Simulated scan of single mutants.
Amino acid sequence: MTKQLKLSEIVPEHLFGKRLDQVLAEMFPDYSRSRIKEWILANSVQVNGQACAIPRQKMLGGEQIEILADIPEEERFDAEPIALDIIFEDEHILVINKPAGLVVHPGAGNQDGTLLNALLHHCPAIAEVPRAGIVHRLDKDTTGLMVIAKTIPAQTHLVEAMQAREITREYEAVCYGTMTGGGTVKQPIGRHQTKRTLMAVNENGKPAVTHYRVMEKYRAHTRLRLRLETGRTHQIRVHMTFISHPLVGDPVYGGRPRPPRQAGEELLQLLRNFKRQALHAAMLKLAHPITGQLLEWHAPLPDDLVALNDALRADTQQHGMDFV
């Protein structure tokens, strides 16, 4: 389903000499630069009554701009009173600490009970923002920080900042194997060649970069701090599996549990019952999309990851750092 959008404005004189795509981005801040460029290339933009398909064409000021374009009509979802752990909120953005088990956006098999449904209840006006202001996602069982836009201008700026890699996201994780030091995984990610619902390192995929450093070493596991340069689907999970250090508990990419030799029954039971990827979005830093103020938030580890680290640390101490 699409709806027709019609916009009409005069180019302000102070935009003299700027390119058409730059002028439109300033005149219509509710729409992203990429969408504006699509409209220009599709002959949906008229300058003084003539279609203009050249984004770089210079404007003099005073031109009559008209845009007539089809845009996707947002699917409507129900508001639901689902509790949110709100870390920060103003009239432009919302930062939450997402729990494990909460799906971000409705999809096949998850039409309700999602973060989007919760956002519609918490802030009804967010229904007018595409995707209810969601600009990035966390997997269902990944915990931690997410930023949501409450207005279209805030969303436009956040999406552009994300694409320009101006938003810093750091994660904590526990992986299998003892790592000797930090590093960077720079491998493209795309759809798995045979299992189309999964992602994989794929030479035809999109560029993906993950930086990691060692926080703590255990006998047969490592606690990591990771920083994303890009935000591909399942990026950390795929990259860590690629370098043979999959995340503990990952039901898709992790394989079977790999306990250290002679582990106690308590640790064995904890590893068997850890049914989600041991991954937590611990830090988020960005420039406020409207004020430009640099903001930073931290979310403490959830109880299950605290218990996992405590058990692995106790096992390591008990066996005198006898790595396997």
Results as ranks from 00 to 15, higher is better:
Thr210Gln: 09
Asn204Tyr: 04
Thr241His: 14
Thr168Asp: 11
Asp139Thr: 00
Thr230Phe: 07
Pro12Trp: 10
Ala25Met: 09
Gly144Val: 12
His239Ser: 13
His211Lys: 15
Phe274Arg: 12
Val159Glu: 02
Thr151Trp: 00
Phe88Leu: 13
Ile96Glu: 01
Phe77Asp: 05
Arg219His: 11
Glu26Val: 11
Glu80Pro: 03
Ala149Gly: 07
Leu115Ser: 10
Arg169Glu: 01
His92Arg: 05
Met162Ala: 15
His105Ile: 02
Pro72Gly: 05
Leu312Gly: 06
Glu74Leu: 08
Glu266Asn: 02
Thr230Glu: 10
Ala314Thr: 12
Arg213Cys: 03
His121Ala: 07
Glu160Gly: 09
Phe242Asp: 15
Ala220Val: 04
Leu24Ser: 15
Leu60Thr: 05
Ala164Asp: 00
Pro260Thr: 08
Ile96Thr: 07
Gln50Pro: 04
Val23Lys: 07
Tyr212Phe: 14
His280Arg: 03
Glu265Asn: 02
His14Tyr: 01
Val103Lys: 12
Arg223Gly: 07
His121Arg: 10
Lys98Glu: 03
Val324Trp: 01
Tyr212Trp: 15
Glu266Leu: 09
Pro130Thr: 13
Arg131Gly: 07
Glu9Pro: 06
Phe323Val: 10
Val11Phe: 14
Arg313Phe: 05
Gln318Cys: 15
Ala69Tyr: 01
Arg261His: 15
Leu312Asp: 10
Gln64Ala: 07
Glu216Met: 05
Ala69Asn: 03
Leu301Thr: 00
Ile10Thr: 02
Gly133Asn: 02
Lys6Asn: 00
Gln277Trp: 06
Gly320Glu: 12
Tyr171Arg: 12
Met179Pro: 04
Ala299Met: 11
Arg276Asp: 09
Ala149Cys: 03
Arg223Val: 06
Pro260Asn: 04
His157Leu: 15
Ser244Trp: 13
Gln163Leu: 15
His122Val: 08
Pro29Leu: 13
Asp322Trp: 12
Lys58Arg: 09
Pro188Phe: 06
Ala299Cys: 11
Leu268Ile: 04
Arg137Glu: 13
Glu74Ser: 11
Ala125Cys: 13
Met146Glu: 00
Val238Lys: 01
Arg272Gly: 04
Ala287Met: 10
Glu74Arg: 08
Ile54Gln: 02
Arg227Trp: 04
Gly183Gln: 04
Gln57Asn: 03
His319Cys: 06
His239Cys: 02
Ser244Tyr: 00
Arg272Pro: 13
Leu267His: 14
Gly320Asn: 00
Met321Trp: 06
Glu296Arg: 09
His239Phe: 08
Lys186Thr: 10
Glu229Gly: 07
Leu138Cys: 00
Pro207Cys: 14
Lys58Cys: 10
Pro72Gln: 15
